[in-house]
Amino acid sequence: MVITSTHRINGLGIDFGFNGVGRYTKLFDDPRLGSVMLWTVLWTVLVVGFTMVISLALAQLYNQNFPGRRVTRWALIIPWAASVIVTSIGFRWMLDEVAGMLNRLMLDLGLIPSAQNWTGDAAHAKPWLVFVAVFVSLPFTTYTLLAGLQSVPAEVYEAARVDGASTWQTYFRITLPLLRPSFLVALVINLINVFNSFPVIWGMTQGGPNTDTSTSTVFMYILGQTDVGESAAMSVVNFAVVIVMVLLFLRVSRWNEES
């Protein structure tokens, strides 16, 4: 990618030779880049944030004994087992203005006066993109946190009860600190996966209209249709951003600190 980004290559793959930082200059001069990167940051923060909060709640639920727990655990695997691109296309058809069942349902209930084009503009499409991305991210994150919860020794909770700790004190002073390694693993992997996510956005909006719902990864693919060198430059920038983001996060979270 680094070598390719220093060459001028058209959409047909014809290499016109070394171009130095010309592809990077073209990339950073692109007026669409700023809005794409802003949406990429917002997309990552929203999807990862909602995923971690909901997954923590689900992990707590699945860590309890209740009728049907095994069935609900199996059901949670479905969004993970299914192809992400197929899931995204399924949601796109569900949201379709003409044939989508969401419009049909809301019209029948009198919730909307006319059918809506839910993926036709960025204002409507972005919340749905976040919803679908969270939906497909929940299984892995929930099972990672559930594994962390089940690794906490029962003796620790017994000692807390003997010492008179309340439910909230036990949760914040025992459960969460001991869940920290699993939480950090899930968080880092989600940051990388969501930042680099392609199939959800491409399957639902293809980054449109224009590039209004494109993240940097989708934008990279769009650039590659006309200028492979500029697309490679975007790929290198993405890689650098991910590395810096993860390193900063690990430093702030003090990955190696033991308490």
Rank of each mutant, 00 (worst) to 15 (best):
residue 112 I to A: 10
residue 58 L to Y: 04
residue 79 P to Q: 01
residue 164 G to R: 05
residue 97 E to Y: 00
residue 49 G to V: 00
residue 188 V to C: 04
residue 66 F to G: 10
residue 77 I to R: 02
residue 164 G to D: 05
residue 30 D to H: 06
residue 172 F to C: 08
residue 214 S to E: 09
residue 130 V to N: 09
residue 205 T to Q: 09
residue 100 G to Y: 00
residue 64 Q to K: 13
residue 123 A to E: 11
residue 186 A to I: 01
residue 70 R to F: 06
residue 75 A to V: 15
residue 160 A to G: 09
residue 193 N to E: 07
residue 62 Y to K: 08
residue 59 A to G: 15
residue 136 V to Q: 08
residue 249 F to S: 12
residue 202 W to L: 00
residue 1 M to K: 07
residue 218 V to A: 07
residue 90 G to A: 02
residue 62 Y to L: 15
residue 208 G to S: 05
residue 253 S to C: 11
residue 7 H to E: 03
residue 125 A to V: 14
residue 112 I to C: 11
residue 103 N to Q: 04
residue 57 A to E: 02
residue 133 A to Y: 01
residue 32 R to P: 03
residue 176 L to Y: 14
residue 105 L to H: 05
residue 105 L to K: 05
residue 55 S to H: 05
residue 3 I to M: 13
residue 181 P to N: 08
residue 111 L to N: 08
residue 206 Q to V: 09
residue 1 M to R: 10
residue 136 V to P: 01
residue 220 M to H: 06
residue 92 R to M: 15
residue 16 F to Y: 14
residue 19 N to C: 14
residue 88 S to Y: 09
residue 76 L to Q: 02
residue 113 P to K: 02
residue 152 V to C: 06
residue 202 W to M: 00
residue 76 L to I: 13
residue 170 T to S: 15
residue 30 D to T: 07
residue 102 L to F: 15
residue 115 A to W: 05
residue 233 A to P: 13
residue 169 Q to T: 12
residue 171 Y to E: 09
residue 47 V to H: 07
residue 144 T to M: 01
residue 34 G to P: 00
residue 234 M to A: 14
residue 168 W to Y: 10
residue 39 W to Y: 13
residue 195 F to T: 12
residue 194 V to D: 04
residue 25 T to G: 15
residue 24 Y to R: 01
residue 62 Y to I: 13
residue 13 G to C: 05
residue 97 E to V: 15
residue 100 G to F: 00
residue 63 N to D: 13
residue 27 L to Q: 01
residue 148 G to C: 11
residue 96 D to P: 13
residue 8 R to S: 15
residue 40 T to C: 02
residue 85 I to M: 13
residue 41 V to A: 13
residue 73 R to K: 13
residue 200 V to A: 05
residue 242 V to P: 03
residue 42 L to Y: 02
residue 201 I to L: 03
residue 138 L to Q: 10
residue 171 Y to R: 08
residue 176 L to D: 07
residue 167 T to W: 08
residue 121 D to H: 02
residue 9 I to N: 04
residue 78 I to E: 01
residue 148 G to W: 06
residue 75 A to D: 02
residue 230 E to C: 15
residue 52 M to I: 13
residue 150 Q to C: 12
residue 189 I to M: 09
residue 17 G to M: 11
residue 58 L to Q: 04
residue 241 V to Q: 07
residue 163 D to C: 05
residue 126 K to D: 05
residue 145 L to G: 09
residue 41 V to E: 06
residue 204 M to K: 10
residue 211 T to A: 04
residue 24 Y to M: 02
residue 183 F to T: 10
residue 50 F to A: 14
residue 80 W to F: 06
residue 217 T to W: 03
residue 55 S to P: 02
residue 24 Y to T: 02
residue 204 M to W: 12
residue 78 I to R: 00
residue 81 A to R: 05
residue 175 T to A: 08
residue 218 V to H: 12
residue 129 L to N: 11
residue 124 H to G: 11
